[in-house]
Design a protein around this nucleic acid. Structure first.
Lengths: 161, 161
DNA sequence: GCTAGATAGTCTGTTCTACAGATCATATTA
DNA sequence: TAATATGATCTGTAGAACAGACTATCTAGC
Protein backbone atom coordinates (compact mmCIF):
# COMPACT_ATOMS: atom_id res chain seq x y z
CA UNK A 1 0.00 0.00 0.00
CA UNK A 2 2.88 2.35 0.63
CA UNK A 3 3.93 1.54 -2.86
CA UNK A 4 0.51 2.56 -4.15
CA UNK A 5 0.72 5.83 -2.32
CA UNK A 6 4.06 6.43 -3.89
CA UNK A 7 2.91 5.87 -7.43
CA UNK A 8 0.00 8.16 -6.77
CA UNK A 9 2.20 11.10 -5.92
CA UNK A 10 5.08 10.43 -8.25
CA UNK A 11 5.21 9.06 -11.72
CA UNK A 12 7.69 6.24 -11.22
CA UNK A 13 5.96 4.04 -13.73
CA UNK A 14 3.22 4.52 -16.20
CA UNK A 15 -0.32 4.05 -15.11
CA UNK A 16 -2.97 1.67 -16.27
CA UNK A 17 -4.65 4.03 -18.69
CA UNK A 18 -1.38 5.00 -20.29
CA UNK A 19 -0.28 1.41 -20.66
CA UNK A 20 -3.61 0.43 -22.17
CA UNK A 21 -3.55 3.34 -24.58
CA UNK A 22 0.01 2.70 -25.58
CA UNK A 23 -0.55 -0.99 -26.25
CA UNK A 24 -3.66 -0.32 -28.26
CA UNK A 25 -1.93 2.35 -30.34
CA UNK A 26 0.95 0.01 -31.02
CA UNK A 27 -1.39 -2.83 -31.92
CA UNK A 28 -3.57 -0.67 -34.17
CA UNK A 29 -0.59 0.89 -35.96
CA UNK A 30 0.74 -2.54 -36.79
CA UNK A 31 -2.69 -3.97 -37.58
CA UNK A 32 -3.40 -1.14 -40.02
CA UNK A 33 -0.21 -1.92 -41.88
CA UNK A 34 -0.84 -5.66 -41.80
CA UNK A 35 -4.35 -5.49 -43.24
CA UNK A 36 -4.13 -2.27 -45.20
CA UNK A 37 -5.99 -3.91 -48.09
CA UNK A 38 -9.05 -4.63 -45.98
CA UNK A 39 -11.77 -1.95 -46.07
CA UNK A 40 -12.00 -0.29 -42.70
CA UNK A 41 -8.70 -1.72 -41.57
CA UNK A 42 -8.70 -3.23 -38.09
CA UNK A 43 -12.28 -2.16 -37.61
CA UNK A 44 -13.39 -3.89 -40.81
CA UNK A 45 -11.56 -6.97 -39.58
CA UNK A 46 -13.38 -6.92 -36.29
CA UNK A 47 -16.76 -6.51 -37.92
CA UNK A 48 -16.04 -9.46 -40.17
CA UNK A 49 -14.83 -11.54 -37.25
CA UNK A 50 -17.98 -10.91 -35.29
CA UNK A 51 -20.16 -11.47 -38.37
CA UNK A 52 -18.39 -14.79 -38.88
CA UNK A 53 -19.13 -15.98 -35.41
CA UNK A 54 -22.31 -16.37 -33.46
CA UNK A 55 -25.62 -15.83 -35.08
CA UNK A 56 -25.88 -12.36 -33.57
CA UNK A 57 -24.68 -10.53 -36.58
CA UNK A 58 -27.09 -7.66 -37.05
CA UNK A 59 -25.51 -4.35 -37.79
CA UNK A 60 -26.67 -2.79 -34.55
CA UNK A 61 -25.48 -5.57 -32.32
CA UNK A 62 -22.10 -5.73 -33.97
CA UNK A 63 -21.77 -1.98 -33.76
CA UNK A 64 -22.65 -1.91 -30.08
CA UNK A 65 -20.30 -4.73 -29.18
CA UNK A 66 -17.43 -3.04 -30.98
CA UNK A 67 -18.20 0.48 -29.83
CA UNK A 68 -18.92 1.68 -33.35
CA UNK A 69 -21.45 4.46 -34.03
CA UNK A 70 -24.50 3.35 -36.01
CA UNK A 71 -23.89 5.74 -38.90
CA UNK A 72 -20.26 4.76 -39.07
CA UNK A 73 -21.40 1.16 -39.13
CA UNK A 74 -23.61 1.82 -42.14
CA UNK A 75 -20.77 3.18 -44.20
CA UNK A 76 -18.33 0.56 -43.02
CA UNK A 77 -20.66 -2.21 -44.10
CA UNK A 78 -21.22 -0.33 -47.37
CA UNK A 79 -17.46 -0.46 -48.00
CA UNK A 80 -17.18 -4.12 -47.06
CA UNK A 81 -20.16 -4.91 -49.28
CA UNK A 82 -18.70 -2.96 -52.18
CA UNK A 83 -15.50 -4.97 -51.83
CA UNK A 84 -17.55 -8.14 -52.07
CA UNK A 85 -16.59 -9.31 -48.59
CA UNK A 86 -20.04 -9.23 -46.97
CA UNK A 87 -23.65 -9.01 -47.93
CA UNK A 88 -26.58 -7.65 -46.01
CA UNK A 89 -29.45 -10.00 -45.38
CA UNK A 90 -32.78 -9.18 -43.75
CA UNK A 91 -33.06 -10.73 -40.31
CA UNK A 92 -36.01 -13.16 -40.40
CA UNK A 93 -36.68 -12.43 -36.73
CA UNK A 94 -36.80 -8.66 -37.12
CA UNK A 95 -37.80 -6.99 -40.37
CA UNK A 96 -36.07 -3.76 -39.42
CA UNK A 97 -32.69 -5.35 -39.03
CA UNK A 98 -29.97 -6.36 -41.46
CA UNK A 99 -27.54 -9.18 -40.83
CA UNK A 100 -23.97 -8.91 -41.98
CA UNK A 101 -23.02 -12.11 -43.72
CA UNK A 102 -19.59 -13.02 -45.02
CA UNK A 103 -19.31 -13.96 -48.68
CA UNK A 104 -17.02 -16.79 -49.72
CA UNK A 105 -14.51 -14.17 -50.74
CA UNK A 106 -14.98 -12.54 -47.38
CA UNK A 107 -14.35 -15.75 -45.50
CA UNK A 108 -11.08 -16.20 -47.34
CA UNK A 109 -10.06 -12.63 -46.74
CA UNK A 110 -10.92 -13.00 -43.07
CA UNK A 111 -8.82 -16.13 -42.75
CA UNK A 112 -5.86 -14.42 -44.39
CA UNK A 113 -6.29 -11.32 -42.27
CA UNK A 114 -6.60 -13.38 -39.12
CA UNK A 115 -3.18 -14.87 -39.70
CA UNK A 116 -1.65 -11.49 -40.20
CA UNK A 117 -3.40 -10.15 -37.14
CA UNK A 118 -2.19 -13.09 -35.12
CA UNK A 119 1.32 -12.18 -36.17
CA UNK A 120 0.76 -8.60 -35.06
CA UNK A 121 -0.44 -9.88 -31.75
CA UNK A 122 2.61 -12.07 -31.31
CA UNK A 123 4.79 -9.08 -32.11
CA UNK A 124 3.04 -6.84 -29.61
CA UNK A 125 3.36 -9.50 -26.93
CA UNK A 126 6.83 -10.40 -28.08
CA UNK A 127 8.59 -9.63 -24.82
CA UNK A 128 6.45 -12.04 -22.83
CA UNK A 129 7.13 -15.74 -22.63
CA UNK A 130 4.52 -17.96 -24.23
CA UNK A 131 3.14 -18.76 -20.81
CA UNK A 132 2.90 -15.12 -19.84
CA UNK A 133 1.42 -14.19 -23.18
CA UNK A 134 -1.32 -16.81 -22.83
CA UNK A 135 -1.96 -15.68 -19.29
CA UNK A 136 -2.16 -12.08 -20.40
CA UNK A 137 -4.64 -12.97 -23.12
CA UNK A 138 -6.82 -14.86 -20.71
CA UNK A 139 -6.79 -12.04 -18.19
CA UNK A 140 -7.49 -9.54 -20.95
CA UNK A 141 -10.53 -11.44 -22.13
CA UNK A 142 -11.76 -11.81 -18.57
CA UNK A 143 -11.42 -8.10 -17.90
CA UNK A 144 -13.12 -7.28 -21.18
CA UNK A 145 -15.94 -9.71 -20.49
CA UNK A 146 -16.71 -7.92 -17.24
CA UNK A 147 -17.24 -4.64 -19.05
CA UNK A 148 -20.42 -3.35 -20.60
CA UNK A 149 -20.91 -5.36 -23.76
CA UNK A 150 -18.41 -7.33 -25.71
CA UNK A 151 -20.12 -10.36 -27.10
CA UNK A 152 -22.60 -9.34 -29.77
CA UNK A 153 -25.06 -11.87 -28.36
CA UNK A 154 -24.96 -10.02 -25.03
CA UNK A 155 -26.31 -6.79 -26.43
CA UNK A 156 -29.40 -5.82 -24.45
CA UNK A 157 -32.67 -6.49 -26.19
CA UNK A 158 -31.32 -9.18 -28.44
CA UNK A 159 -33.17 -12.43 -28.20
CA UNK A 160 -31.27 -15.57 -28.94
CA UNK A 161 -31.11 -14.39 -32.54
CA UNK B 1 -2.29 -24.99 -31.70
CA UNK B 2 -5.47 -26.69 -32.88
CA UNK B 3 -7.20 -24.37 -30.51
CA UNK B 4 -5.63 -21.40 -32.22
CA UNK B 5 -6.76 -22.61 -35.59
CA UNK B 6 -10.24 -22.87 -34.27
CA UNK B 7 -10.43 -19.36 -32.95
CA UNK B 8 -8.99 -18.15 -36.22
CA UNK B 9 -11.80 -19.51 -38.32
CA UNK B 10 -14.66 -19.03 -35.93
CA UNK B 11 -15.46 -16.31 -33.50
CA UNK B 12 -15.86 -18.32 -30.33
CA UNK B 13 -14.30 -15.62 -28.20
CA UNK B 14 -13.31 -12.08 -28.79
CA UNK B 15 -9.89 -11.36 -30.11
CA UNK B 16 -7.08 -9.41 -28.61
CA UNK B 17 -7.82 -6.16 -30.40
CA UNK B 18 -11.45 -6.26 -29.46
CA UNK B 19 -10.68 -6.98 -25.85
CA UNK B 20 -8.14 -4.19 -25.70
CA UNK B 21 -10.52 -1.73 -27.34
CA UNK B 22 -13.37 -2.76 -25.13
CA UNK B 23 -11.38 -2.38 -21.91
CA UNK B 24 -10.01 0.96 -22.95
CA UNK B 25 -13.45 2.27 -23.87
CA UNK B 26 -14.81 1.10 -20.57
CA UNK B 27 -11.91 2.64 -18.67
CA UNK B 28 -12.10 5.95 -20.55
CA UNK B 29 -15.88 6.24 -20.16
CA UNK B 30 -15.53 5.82 -16.41
CA UNK B 31 -12.44 7.99 -16.19
CA UNK B 32 -14.18 10.83 -18.02
CA UNK B 33 -16.98 10.76 -15.52
CA UNK B 34 -14.62 10.48 -12.56
CA UNK B 35 -12.48 13.48 -13.51
CA UNK B 36 -14.95 15.52 -15.51
CA UNK B 37 -13.75 18.68 -13.75
CA UNK B 38 -10.21 18.27 -15.03
CA UNK B 39 -9.42 20.07 -18.31
CA UNK B 40 -8.81 17.49 -21.01
CA UNK B 41 -10.29 14.73 -18.94
CA UNK B 42 -8.25 11.50 -18.89
CA UNK B 43 -5.80 13.01 -21.29
CA UNK B 44 -5.24 16.04 -19.08
CA UNK B 45 -4.74 13.68 -16.18
CA UNK B 46 -2.10 11.74 -18.06
CA UNK B 47 -0.23 14.85 -19.07
CA UNK B 48 -0.17 16.02 -15.48
CA UNK B 49 0.95 12.61 -14.28
CA UNK B 50 3.86 12.56 -16.67
CA UNK B 51 4.73 16.17 -15.92
CA UNK B 52 4.75 15.29 -12.25
CA UNK B 53 7.23 12.51 -12.68
CA UNK B 54 10.67 12.36 -14.21
CA UNK B 55 12.40 15.45 -15.32
CA UNK B 56 11.46 14.76 -18.92
CA UNK B 57 8.48 16.99 -19.02
CA UNK B 58 8.83 18.94 -22.22
CA UNK B 59 5.69 19.29 -24.24
CA UNK B 60 7.01 17.29 -27.14
CA UNK B 61 8.27 14.39 -25.10
CA UNK B 62 5.07 14.16 -23.12
CA UNK B 63 3.05 14.34 -26.30
CA UNK B 64 5.06 11.61 -27.98
CA UNK B 65 4.90 9.30 -25.00
CA UNK B 66 1.15 9.69 -24.76
CA UNK B 67 0.46 9.59 -28.48
CA UNK B 68 -0.86 13.14 -28.53
CA UNK B 69 -0.46 15.36 -31.59
CA UNK B 70 1.77 18.40 -31.06
CA UNK B 71 -0.97 20.91 -31.90
CA UNK B 72 -3.42 19.15 -29.67
CA UNK B 73 -0.79 19.26 -26.97
CA UNK B 74 -0.47 23.02 -27.30
CA UNK B 75 -4.14 23.59 -26.70
CA UNK B 76 -4.34 20.98 -23.96
CA UNK B 77 -1.54 22.68 -22.05
CA UNK B 78 -3.21 26.03 -22.73
CA UNK B 79 -6.35 24.72 -20.99
CA UNK B 80 -4.43 23.27 -18.06
CA UNK B 81 -2.52 26.52 -17.72
CA UNK B 82 -5.69 28.57 -17.83
CA UNK B 83 -7.08 26.43 -15.05
CA UNK B 84 -4.00 27.20 -13.00
CA UNK B 85 -2.92 23.59 -12.87
CA UNK B 86 0.35 23.86 -14.79
CA UNK B 87 2.77 26.48 -15.97
CA UNK B 88 5.14 26.45 -18.92
CA UNK B 89 8.76 26.96 -18.20
CA UNK B 90 11.60 27.28 -20.69
CA UNK B 91 13.84 24.25 -20.66
CA UNK B 92 17.34 25.40 -19.63
CA UNK B 93 18.88 22.70 -21.78
CA UNK B 94 16.97 23.57 -24.95
CA UNK B 95 15.76 27.08 -25.62
CA UNK B 96 13.15 25.85 -28.09
CA UNK B 97 11.38 23.70 -25.60
CA UNK B 98 8.85 24.34 -22.86
CA UNK B 99 8.53 22.21 -19.76
CA UNK B 100 5.16 21.53 -18.26
CA UNK B 101 5.32 22.09 -14.53
CA UNK B 102 2.60 21.43 -12.02
CA UNK B 103 1.49 24.31 -9.83
CA UNK B 104 0.68 23.67 -6.16
CA UNK B 105 -2.96 23.71 -7.15
CA UNK B 106 -2.16 21.27 -9.93
CA UNK B 107 -0.40 18.89 -7.58
CA UNK B 108 -3.44 18.82 -5.33
CA UNK B 109 -5.75 18.31 -8.25
CA UNK B 110 -3.55 15.50 -9.53
CA UNK B 111 -3.56 13.77 -6.18
CA UNK B 112 -7.32 13.95 -5.98
CA UNK B 113 -7.73 12.80 -9.55
CA UNK B 114 -5.32 9.95 -8.98
CA UNK B 115 -7.51 8.55 -6.24
CA UNK B 116 -10.55 8.70 -8.41
CA UNK B 117 -8.70 7.12 -11.30
CA UNK B 118 -7.46 4.37 -9.01
CA UNK B 119 -11.06 3.67 -8.14
CA UNK B 120 -11.96 3.50 -11.82
CA UNK B 121 -9.14 1.05 -12.33
CA UNK B 122 -10.32 -1.12 -9.47
CA UNK B 123 -13.80 -1.09 -10.95
CA UNK B 124 -12.59 -2.06 -14.39
CA UNK B 125 -10.54 -4.89 -12.94
CA UNK B 126 -13.28 -5.73 -10.48
CA UNK B 127 -13.82 -9.31 -11.62
CA UNK B 128 -10.21 -10.29 -11.04
CA UNK B 129 -8.86 -11.33 -7.67
CA UNK B 130 -6.30 -8.96 -6.15
CA UNK B 131 -3.55 -11.33 -7.18
CA UNK B 132 -4.78 -11.55 -10.74
CA UNK B 133 -5.32 -7.82 -10.93
CA UNK B 134 -1.74 -7.14 -9.81
CA UNK B 135 -0.47 -9.72 -12.25
CA UNK B 136 -2.49 -8.15 -15.03
CA UNK B 137 -1.11 -4.72 -14.23
CA UNK B 138 2.44 -6.00 -14.25
CA UNK B 139 1.96 -7.79 -17.55
CA UNK B 140 0.26 -4.72 -18.98
CA UNK B 141 3.16 -2.47 -18.07
CA UNK B 142 5.62 -5.01 -19.45
CA UNK B 143 3.79 -5.22 -22.76
CA UNK B 144 3.50 -1.46 -22.96
CA UNK B 145 7.18 -1.01 -22.17
CA UNK B 146 8.11 -3.17 -25.14
CA UNK B 147 6.25 -0.92 -27.53
CA UNK B 148 7.57 2.20 -29.26
CA UNK B 149 7.73 4.87 -26.58
CA UNK B 150 6.00 5.04 -23.31
CA UNK B 151 8.29 6.66 -20.85
CA UNK B 152 8.77 10.30 -21.71
CA UNK B 153 12.48 9.92 -20.93
CA UNK B 154 12.74 7.27 -23.61
CA UNK B 155 11.71 9.58 -26.39
CA UNK B 156 14.44 9.56 -29.05
CA UNK B 157 16.67 12.56 -29.05
CA UNK B 158 16.11 13.41 -25.45
CA UNK B 159 19.23 13.63 -23.40
CA UNK B 160 18.97 12.88 -19.72
CA UNK B 161 16.95 16.12 -19.44
C1' DG C 1 33.53 27.43 -37.24
C1' DC C 2 29.92 27.32 -40.52
C1' DT C 3 25.93 25.74 -42.79
C1' DA C 4 22.24 22.75 -43.97
C1' DG C 5 18.82 20.30 -42.09
C1' DA C 6 16.02 19.15 -38.17
C1' DT C 7 13.19 20.29 -34.24
C1' DA C 8 9.89 22.78 -30.34
C1' DG C 9 6.11 25.25 -30.12
C1' DT C 10 2.47 28.14 -32.04
C1' DC C 11 -0.94 29.35 -35.25
C1' DT C 12 -4.14 28.89 -39.21
C1' DG C 13 -6.67 26.32 -42.13
C1' DT C 14 -8.35 21.92 -43.53
C1' DT C 15 -9.44 17.17 -43.33
C1' DC C 16 -11.26 13.47 -41.05
C1' DT C 17 -14.12 11.15 -37.89
C1' DA C 18 -17.93 10.74 -35.11
C1' DC C 19 -22.30 11.92 -34.13
C1' DA C 20 -27.24 14.16 -33.92
C1' DG C 21 -31.41 14.35 -35.86
C1' DA C 22 -34.91 13.26 -39.23
C1' DT C 23 -37.15 9.70 -41.65
C1' DC C 24 -39.55 5.28 -42.79
C1' DA C 25 -40.65 0.79 -41.56
C1' DT C 26 -41.15 -2.24 -37.96
C1' DA C 27 -41.35 -4.04 -33.21
C1' DT C 28 -42.65 -3.63 -28.39
C1' DT C 29 -45.20 -2.14 -24.51
C1' DA C 30 -49.00 -0.63 -21.85
C1' DT D 1 -55.14 -0.11 -30.31
C1' DA D 2 -52.05 3.57 -29.83
C1' DA D 3 -47.93 5.32 -28.03
C1' DT D 4 -43.30 4.58 -27.78
C1' DA D 5 -39.03 2.54 -29.08
C1' DT D 6 -35.85 0.65 -32.39
C1' DG D 7 -32.82 -0.66 -37.02
C1' DA D 8 -30.97 1.30 -40.76
C1' DT D 9 -30.16 5.08 -43.84
C1' DC D 10 -29.25 9.72 -45.00
C1' DT D 11 -27.95 14.62 -44.39
C1' DG D 12 -25.77 17.98 -42.05
C1' DT D 13 -22.74 19.43 -38.45
C1' DA D 14 -19.62 19.47 -34.55
C1' DG D 15 -15.46 18.31 -32.77
C1' DA D 16 -11.05 16.25 -32.96
C1' DA D 17 -6.92 15.57 -35.31
C1' DC D 18 -3.65 16.94 -38.34
C1' DA D 19 -0.73 19.44 -42.19
C1' DG D 20 1.82 23.12 -43.21
C1' DA D 21 3.96 27.58 -42.45
C1' DC D 22 6.60 30.18 -39.42
C1' DT D 23 10.24 31.75 -35.90
C1' DA D 24 13.73 30.54 -32.92
C1' DT D 25 16.89 27.22 -31.72
C1' DC D 26 19.55 22.92 -31.92
C1' DT D 27 22.37 19.24 -34.14
C1' DA D 28 25.21 16.93 -37.45
C1' DG D 29 28.58 16.95 -40.80
C1' DC D 30 32.17 19.10 -43.28
Amino acid sequence: MTETAETTTEQDSIDFGQALGSILRNYLDKARDAISDLPGGPRGFQVMSVANGDDCSNQATIATSLGIDRTVMTYLVDDLEKAGLVTRRPDPADRRARQVVLTAKGAKALAAASERIAQVERTVLGNLSDTDADLFRQLLVRVAAAGPVVDACDVPGVAEC
